[in-house]
Design a protein around this nucleic acid. Structure first.
Length: 430
DNA sequence: TCTGGGGTCCTAGGACCC
DNA sequence: TCTGGGGTCCTAGGACCC
């Protein structure tokens, strides 16, 4: 038995938390560079604002309807998320944090929950809301896919009061019959289209399909979904594994047409990715550097550039990685392209004890230790003295450039204060 | 003018090995 | 001249998730 707890309109709810004046008002949150709408409060959804639309298309509409608009404030969301998750951890021994605003709980071997699932679900909801101010929906089912389905019902049907437990076979069947196939966890746009073509429109129609047939047509992933809908658990609680791939990339607030500027942007991403790499105590063997102009322009040809670098010995040293990135950039750079985005991807990731040494490497062990000590010190300094307003770290490599002089840096014109993570942004009650 | 960013898993096909 | 059968590893691409 699994529970799925999902925060309601998470980013928008976070923005409302410290702004009581926004109660019952429509609020939307934008993606990086104030590009698209990525979160909407209940009121904003009721106005008909769609998820994922470019902001410039609805800017006027928002103004006319007094919609409060925010840039995304990840420092705030990440901190609030942590509070929600630790509250859940105090209420259940097995918690899998699935995303910034969702968590699965495994209930089967937790008698406190199993005794009365509905009561437990309501307790989860009430306590999280009381401790954090974030409202959540709770779905409980025999498998993760059913818990997801229950969660969807808890949000959609007000009669559930935000908590839906799927144990009654007749209810499950009824809910499946009135729910569109596209709502199922694991069925995306493509699968929905293909399923519709075969006459499968509702969740129930997928649930009664022969799993073997689904496997032949769609593969094992959708077969598992089908089995899960029938109560056979195929997807368990996952433990936190080190990432096998680390990406850092971002669009620029304005186009870059200069090799030096583009290289600075890439070096900034290398530094960020390298620090994530060290956070999970890993080393990387491959690095891929990429940049591109806009894919949406009709007047320019879409020109993605990319290049790879293989390290002789897996590394986590920012200096080595930036050196490699600069080398790759100088090889792949194409002139006269109006670049709109760049980034870096690390792969071939291994743990400390798995590093394959280079037979011809002249670096001694003590040199290697010095390297990691230096990087640890950089990380320590940067975590103790948090980024400034321009996102500049305290200690950085010169190739990254001075952020406040970089006109292409992400724009966040509608940024709210970091209420919970910056001392100067604390709310003052007079 | 302005369109996010970061992940996972699975499969097919080619290169290569014995 | 004839050229099997079984396996691994890697990569690219396609699907999905939030």
């Amino acid at each position: 038995m699994y529970a799925l707890i999902d925060c309601n309109s998470f980013y928008a709810t976070c923005e409302k938390l410290f702004r009581p004046d926004l109660k019952n008002k429509p609020v939307v949150v934008l993606s990086n560079n104030d590009g698209c709408i990525v979160a909407r409060s209940k009121e904003a959804k009721e106005l008909g604002i769609k998820m994922g639309v470019p902001y410039f298309q609805v800017k006027e509409f928002c103004k006319r309807n007094n919609v409060e608009v925010f840039s995304s404030n990840y420092a705030l969301y990440a901190d609030m998320s942590q509070r929600v998750m630790s509250t859940l951890e105090s209420l259940c021994p097995t918690v899998e944090v699935y995303s910034i605003d969702e968590a699965f709980l495994y209930l089967a071997d937790y008698p406190v929950a199993m005794q009365n699932l509905d009561e437990y679900g309501r307790k989860l909801k009430a306590i999280v809301e009381k401790y954090t101010g974030i409202s959540v929906g709770v779905g409980i089912g025999k498998t993760k896919t059913l818990a997801k389905l229950a969660n969807h019902a808890a949000k959609k049907y007000s009669a559930t009061k935000g908590v839906c437990v799927l144990t009654n076979e007749r209810w499950i069947r009824r809910l499946m019959q009135i729910t569109d196939i596209g709502e199922v966890w694991g069925v995306g746009r493509r699968y929905k289209q293909r399923l519709n073509k075969l006459g499968v429109e509702t969740v129930y129609q997928l649930a009664i399909c022969e799993p073997e047939k689904i496997r032949q047509h769609f593969g094992v992933v959708l077969e598992r979904t089908c089995l899960e809908l029938n109560g056979q658990s195929c997807i368990g609680i996952e433990t936190i594994e080190p990432k096998q791939q680390i990406i850092s990339s971002r669009s620029f607030s304005k186009r870059i047409t200069d090799q030096h500027e583009l290289t600075e942007a890439v070096c900034g991403h290398v530094a960020k990715a390298a620090s994530k790499l060290r956070q999970q105590n890993s080393f990387c063997g491959f690095m891929s550097v990429f940049a591109t102009n806009s894919a949406f322009s009709s007047s320019e040809r879409y020109t993605p550039i990319s290049g790879q670098y293989q390290f002789n010995v897996p590394t986590a040293d920012t200096r080595v990685m930036i050196g490699a990135a600069r080398e790759v950039m100088s090889k792949i750079y194409i002139d006269k392209v109006r670049y709109s985005k760049a980034g870096v991807m690390l792969s071939g990731i291994c743990q400390h004890d798995e590093v394959q040494l280079d037979m011809f490497d002249t670096q001694s062990e003590s040199e290697g230790n010095k390297r990691s000590e230096l990087m640890a010190l950089v990380d320590e300094l940067n975590s103790r003295f948090q980024h400034d307003r321009n996102q500049q770290a305290t200690v950085f490599i010169a190739s990254e450039g001075i952020k406040k002089m970089q006109t292409w840096q992400m724009s966040r014109e509608l940024l709210s204060p970091c209420y919970t993570t910056r001392i100067n942004d604390l709310v003052v009650v007079k």
